[in-house]
Design a protein around this nucleic acid. Structure first.
Length: 928
RNA sequence: GGGCGAUUAGCUCAGUUGGUUCAGAGCGUACGCUUCACACGCGUAAGGUCGUAGGUUCGAAUCCUACAUCGCCCACCA
């Protein structure tokens, strides 16, 4: 066995093990195994994406869960894949085309699509490769893409089914229009930003009246599309005007003055211009009052032919200036007020969106939402943290129809076919469409030009990736999946819609046992949804490209190691809170990996030393004290097997670490079961660092370097290795690389991997309260001596003597048993017992659980430092006594608090008082 | 306008049902250590009236109410 380097070097380890795992098929999951399935579908990253810290967090959590369950014996399946990301991808490729001096219109649709596919082949798997660096144990043979053949079929199938059911319809609606992309956007794809704008007050003459109507608007150019003026029906100021006719300045169109509840009397003048083609509210009023809809823009936001000649062809913002100027010149402009309002922008290109009237496809959401609302309400799908349930319920009960058509080229083309006569239907193929439309092969059919919203393929992800609409074993076995890990920002885009889709389309589909699915728990796409934190920088700002505050995870991995990054990010992310991340924080994970590494190195050195001794003895051909069955190196190797915990020669430290280990296992499983990821990391950190390294390893040293027989030493090392082996297993989901590397060094594994080793289970036998109490006492004694040493500036290299006076309840034996520990851990050369009355002079002292400890200071230090230390401790205890006496002096407390609490308080009082007396006496002695 | 979250040591945060010598950890700081795994380390220490004001209770960092500050989500914004 090669000797381990002094510090853990992740770069030399990580890729090697990842290749090992992958080439040995350890990520693979199979349907219909005898195991219980545990499935996670990855939130498919965009093919345009590169790995961000957000992905790191998200995928680390998924990997922790999947590795944990895999080791626990589940058929753990993590399905990876990517999303075609319609608008985003089209953007990227169009930019590339611009560089080449061409554009998509010159190329034509077919050629453009070819170019996007080429781009996808070259760059589309960047993020997938990066996930491997992180250690993600996805089943790569299952990798899917939202536009691959199978998923495209699923999309078509879903569209046709919804269409045939009457849940997909086509209609003229006001949509959010991006003039740059020339496409409609769903409400969720619009970002609102506060902007300083103006409120222009415009005067509209009224026919047959000297009165005028003054309206206020933030978008004066839209007046060209006005077809009415509206006031609130309860507005006394304007009641007389209702039914009259106003004249539209600059255009001359006659506008009826109507009354509608939508008008807010308090805003502006209380009179509103109505532009049904260019404002969502006006559109509604237009429908109620049968108003004309005048569309004044073209697809790029320029004024079209329906406006007066002088404005035609102008850009919308250019036109705004002209209109304001002209109104002013002709005396129609009353005033201009600065006005702060929020403006919708395209989430991709930041262009100000224009409410625009156009033909679009919609999904009726209400029927789909009802069951999906119920399963979350009833807890069949659970959210973590559960406060998102409220947000979900609010959105789902007020759900609006989903605009699914996009006027771009990259995406799933809408499977609707039109005859020349204007009949149409949705169909799986053109032939299918002819049948449904009842037309022969002579009739030319035209397919709809639009493509579907990207989310129309991703909402099918939990079942389309498993083969739907085909009836596959995979689909029967792995759906419903178990846990979804995603950001709360896509709860509506994605999470809600997946619940709706899975429930709708998996209805009646066979379960693993072949029976049709009817119950909610078989129909939901997943049972638990974990909403991850948002990663921010150290100043609390969102990570973003433009701020340049987002570290490249690959750089971080290169510098600190993947395990360090994984552990740190998991450590920092409490459920439901934001994470403030900075690269330097990875020192936490790196240091911890190194600590773990060195603990292993230490044990392996002990093991090697044992082995070398055996070799010596071999030469002498003796069986000396190595145990009956151990002859030579091979025998010892075999005897150091880590499968079975050796239970002979157990001392306090052994019983203690086994108790701690089992507590850690239980707490760890508990934490992960409840999605308290950061708590799970703290449990591991504390167990490994503070229990195992700080204490147990030191206890092992006392026995290993002490004068125990070889046989005992062997057992001590073997047991320590066994405990360490369990720690590696516990840590593997969080830190797969370093644990695998170490685990392989512990013993000959013959091709086995820690990835598939059994996860530790709790063994109740080892829970041992008494041992933990006794060990706490030993630790306190050691701490007390260390404290005296530290406060009195005693050099670590110089050993001290210690006098001990056990309290009445202590067995003196306890001290004799643990004297060796005290000697090593507090650097004490000799421990001796003193009579009940003798108080050493010039000695530092402490009282631990009633036992008195004296460290003679003669010749070592001045007394004043020790006096200060004692006085401080005395003050602390005095305050404690005071608060206890106050409590016990309160008759209400004694009467009403539970008896145990009162009893404990009394005991505490007594103990503290005795300690105080002793300390005071010791202080007095010191003063002589 | 409606809803949600946060506020604990200089910084970043734990603290699960109210009660164990409960006010904790990591980082940072100070002091001392190259002690036979680890200086990416070891030991010791300093540092907080748990945002404010009330309330419930024998007892509140923890439960309730109001307020303040910061942040997020939804709706509206002519």
């Amino acid at each position: 066995m090669a000797e381990l380097p002094k510090a853990y070097a992740p770069r030399e380890v990580e890729d090697r093990w990842y290749e090992f795992w992958e080439s040995h098929g350890l990520f693979r999951a199979t349907a219909n195994s005898s195991k219980t399935p545990y499935t996670i579908v990855i939130p498919p990253p965009n093919i345009t994406g590169v790995l961000t810290m957000g992905h790191v967090l998200n995928n680390t959590i998924q990997d922790i869960l999947i590795r944990w369950k895999r080791m626990q014996g589940y058929e753990a399946c993590w399905i990876p894949g990517t999303d075609h990301a319609g608008i985003a991808t089209q953007n990227v490729v169009e930019k590339a085309l611009l560089q080449e001096g061409t554009n998509r219109h010159q190329l034509g649709r077919e050629e453009f699509i070819t170019r996007v596919w080429e781009w996808k082949e070259e760059y589309g798997s960047t993020i997938i490769k990066q996930l491997r660096k992180l250690g993600a144990s996805c089943d790569w043979e299952r990798e899917r893409f939202t536009m691959d053949e199978g998923l495209s079929n699923a999309v078509k199938e879903v569209f046709v089914r919804l269409f045939d059911k009457g849940l997909i319809y086509r209609g003229k609606y006001i949509v959010n229009w991006c003039p740059h992309h020339r496409t409609a956007l769903s409400d969720d794809e619009v970002d609102y930003t506060e902007m300083q704008g103006n409120l222009w007050h415009i005067r509209y003459p009224i026919e047959g009246s000297k009165n005028v109507a003054v309206v206020a608007t933030t978008r004066p150019e839209t007046m060209l599309g006005d077809t009415a003026i509206a006031v609130n029906p309860h507005d006394e100021r304007y009641k007389s005007l209702i039914g009259k006719t106003a004249v539209l300045p600059l255009v001359g169109r006659k506008l009826p003055i109507i009354a509608d509840e939508l008008v807010d009397m308090a805003f502006g003048t209380g009179m509103v211009k109505v532009t049904p083609a260019h404002d969502p509210n006006d559109f509604l009023m237009g429908q109620r009052h049968n108003l004309q809809q005048v569309n004044i823009f073209d697809e790029e936001g320029r004024l079209n032919e329906s406006v007066p000649k002088q404005y035609e062809g102008l850009d919308r913002f250019e036109c705004r200036k002209r209109i304001v100027k002209d109104l002013d010149a002709q005396g129609f402009l009353v005033k201009v007020e600065p006005h702060q309002h929020s403006v919708g922008r395209c989430y991709r290109c930041n262009t100000i969106i224009e409410p625009y009237l156009s033909d679009q496809w919609f999904v009726k959401m209400k029927p789909l939402a009802t069951p999906a609302l119920r399963v979350v309400h009833e807890g069949i799908v659970r959210f973590h943290p559960d406060r998102w349930v409220k947000v979900y319920e609010h959105w789902m009960t007020n759900i609006r129809d989903w605009c699914i058509s996009r006027q771009i080229w990259w995406g799933h083309r809408i499977p609707v076919y039109y005859t020349t006569g204007g009949n149409y239907t949705a169909a799986r193929s053109e032939d299918d469409a002819r049948t449904k439309l009842g037309v022969g092969p002579d009739m030319p059919l035209r397919q709809d030009e639009d493509v579907l919203d990207t989310w129309f393929s991703s909402w099918l992800w939990p079942f389309s990736t498993l083969g739907w609409p085909e009836d596959t074993n995979d689909l029967r076995f792995f759906n419903p999946t178990n846990t979804l890990v995603t950001g709360p920002d896509i709860i509506f885009f994605w999470v809600a819609r997946m619940i709706m889709a899975n429930m709708e389309f998996m209805k009646g589909f066979p379960r693993a046992d072949g029976r049709p699915r009817t119950k909610s728990k078989d129909l939901v796409p997943f049972r638990d949804v974990y909403f991850t934190s948002i990663i921010r920088d150290a100043q609390g700002r969102k990570m973003s490209k433009s701020l340049g505050n987002s570290p490249d995870p690959l750089d971080v991995i290169n510098e600190y190691g993947a395990d360090a990054l994984r552990f740190t990010i998991a450590y920092l992310s409490p459920l439901g809170q934001d994470v403030l991340f900075s690269t330097e924080k990875c020192e936490l994970g790196r240091n911890f990996a190194n600590k773990l590494w060195n603990a292993g190195r230490f044990l392996l050195m002990n093991k090697a030393e044992l082995l070398s001794k055996v070799s010596d003895q071999d030469k002498r051909s003796t069986r000396e004290s190595l145990g009956q069955e151990t002859f030579g190196r091979r025998g010892l190797e075999k005897n150091l097997d880590l499968e079975n915990l050796p239970e002979e020669h157990l001392d306090l430290a052994d019983r203690w670490i086994l108790s701690r280990l089992n507590h850690a296992i239980r707490a760890f499983n508990d934490a992960l079961t409840n999605f308290r990821i950061n708590e799970s990391t703290k449990i591991l950190y504390d167990f490994v660092w503070h229990d195992f390294c700080d204490w147990y390893a030191e206890f092992v040293k006392t026995r290993f370097y002490g004068d125990e027989p070889s046989e005992v030493k062997r057992v001590v090392v073997q047991r320590a290795l066994w405990v360490y082996d369990r720690a590696l297993r516990l840590l593997h989901p969080h830190m797969p690389f370093v644990t695998e590397e170490l685990w392989q060094h512990l013993s000959e594994r013959n091709g086995a991997s820690l990835m598939r080793a059994e996860f530790p289970t709790v063994d109740e036998r080892w829970f041992d309260e008494k041992t933990e109490r006794e060990m706490a006492f030993v630790q306190n004694v050691i701490n007390a001596v260390r404290n005296i040493r530290g406060e009195n500036n005693i050099l670590p290299s110089s050993e001290v003597r210690v006098h001990v006076r056990p309290a009445a309840q202590h067995r003196a034996l306890v001290f004799e048993e643990y004297a060796q520990y005290l000697k090593r851990l507090a650097r004490v050369e000799q421990v001796d017992f003193i009579s009940p009355t003798w108080v050493p002079k010039l000695a530092a002292s402490a009282v631990v659980n009633g036992a008195e400890i004296f460290v003679p200071l003669e010749g070592i230090i001045d007394v004043s430092a020790e006096r200060r230390r004692l006085e401080k401790e005395i003050t602390r205890l005095e305050q404690l006594v005071e608060s206890i006496e106050k409590k016990l002096g309160n008759p209400q407390f004694v009467e009403r608090a539970p008896k145990e609490v009162v009893q404990k308080e009394r005991e505490k009082e007594e103990n503290v008082k005795t300690s105080l007396e002793k300390l005071r006496r010791n202080l007095e002695q010191l003063s002589y």
